[in-house]
Amino acid sequence: MQATLNALVQKAAAEFATIQARPEFEAAKARYVGPNGELTALMKQMGSVPKEQRPVVGKLINECKVHIQELLDAAVDRIAAGELKAQLGPAVDPTLPSPDAGPGTYHPLTLVREEMCRILRKVGFAVADGPEVETEFYCFDALCTPADHPARDAQDTFYFPETARFGNVEKRVPEEKYLLRTHTSSVQIRTMLKGPPPIRIVSPGRVYRRDTTDATHSANFHQLECLYVDRNVTVRDLKALLDYIFASLLGKDTKTRFRPHYFGYTEPSFEVDLSAQHLPKVKKEWIEIGGCGMVDPAVFSAVGYDPEVWTGYAFGMGLERLAMLLYGIDDIRYFYQNDLRFLKQFA
């Protein structure tokens, strides 16, 4: 009996070793342990084994059964592994490029704008927005720009015909004209008219000037302005904000300075210069980056804030100019051409 069983195990081991696929395996399995299998047949012979030999024979058969089961398990594992391997195909060449387009890129103006907004959010400025088509009131009158001021001239500002109608930009008086805003200061006016102080907003956005397009001028460009209105806001606070902004943006070795200047809607007014040795564009020691000042009391009056109570400051700058400075770009038109070789440099 033992010899028969050993032979059976050996035969099974040899047979199972060559099996590659599941149907073959199932057939082989049936030949040994199926209802008509060889091992099953041997087990059926147990009845004819003398009683005293039964424990010994039983043990032998059982061992054989375990052995065959192990062989079966090994075979099925091998087949399963083979099946998985078949799913794989040859190994990849990790150095081949992905055929998919991408990755996507943010426009450099978006990157600079969002960075400025993050810096300003940290000190409590919320991002405000307003229409690009404006009326004379929001763009000029409320900012104390006299009716015959050159900035209002059709030479410098884009106007719409008197018949033009903009459904979601309301005129304050019927005779005022629609125009393309020349600065984002109109958003300041809208924000102040919407609610009482204190106010702390940053308004980035697209603005328009009737200008020849060249390396430094563009018919539309982007500005970013800050407005803070509260009690007891001082010139020193304004300087502190500018110092903070540019140190955050350009590093601690950045310096800013104010030069007295004139804007119709701030008093006193300053131009802001910055100095940052590491910037490729800052060859001179000081480079002009924006304008700022204390909100003129007349502006507060125009929006119905009491100028005796409220004080504030405003700061504005061109985003293209800042981006050009940061990245060392020397032609403003690149921002609007969107050559992918340009766009992919800033991601």
Binding site: A126, A128, V235, Y244, R257, P260, E267
Partner: peptide, 29 residues
Amino acid sequence: LVEEVLRLHGTDRIPAAVVSAPGLALEDD
């Protein structure tokens, strides 16, 4: 006249300060 005084004082002499930012709970537009 504040501007006149400041001009002659020198705008490069405005003392440094930290930004004071009392919380204004506003969400972005």
